[in-house]
Design a binder for these strands. Structure first.
Lengths: 123, 123
DNA sequence: CTGTATCCGACACGATACTG
DNA sequence: CAGTATCGTGTCGGATACAG
């Protein structure tokens, strides 16, 4: 017997409804990976994430800081130095991220194949 | 000893770089959950996903179909009937989705707390 | 160096009307 | 019923210039 659908996929009582917004951020995962084995400076992060503008990287870092995923430490020096570090809470995301990574590794070829087949059928 | 950062987080050779786009879709996960225990019609899906317009739901379904996550079956009847079903490939996403769900369940309270603390500090 | 301010274009999305 | 077409709006994000 098939269950009826839930009435409301956006029910605030269901924490999963927040998943797309909470851990679905486009660049947050990359930042966390970059911080995995030690604090990094803003300019250090800009290198591997060169496709993201300074503005968006800043916004991403602020959001991660606000949510307790990373910490921001500004040193009173000239020139200024700021270091971002992942928090314990931030590290708790790694298992879920690893699950996503493992999925991509295993099934991306199948997805490519499905896309090719779909393009074929559409043509 | 700390590893140097990767040079390019967007390296196409790394399947993980596709994760934000492949499984980071805002509504795809909800659709798959809705299809978990049987095929559903378009209008059935609209109910729990009432915040998503027909246009966007259609786009989401098309993308999922293109990627081989769901199948679309149109019956030649009047009035028309179309059924969407999850594929075996689509089901392979569930473990990763479950990992995200479990994370949200466990750590969302900590995030809320971090947000409150951040708001406090900013005030 | 680590950002912020401003402008602007592209695109995502909803609302509405319409079709087979 | 299951969409598509069109339009208007809002947000995302890059580029550039500038500040502390």
């Amino acid at each position: 017997m098939r269950e009826p659908l839930p009435r409301d996929m956006f029910d605030p009582a269901c924490p999963s409804s927040m998943v797309p917004f909470q851990i679905g951020d486009k660049w947050a995962g990359m930042v966390l990976v970059c911080l995995a084995d030690g604090p990094r400076r803003f300019s250090e992060l800009r290198v591997p994430m060169y496709r993201v503008s300074a503005k968006v990287l800043t916004e991403t870092l602020r959001a991660l800081e606000r949510d307790g995923m990373i910490s921001r430490t500004a040193y009173d020096e000239i020139p200024p130095r700021v270091e971002y570090a992942i928090t314990d809470l931030g590290r708790t995301l790694f298992p879920a991220m690893e699950a996503c990574r493992a999925w991509a590794l295993e099934y991306l070829p199948a997805v490519e194949q499905a896309r090719a087949s779909y393009a074929q059928r559409s043509a």
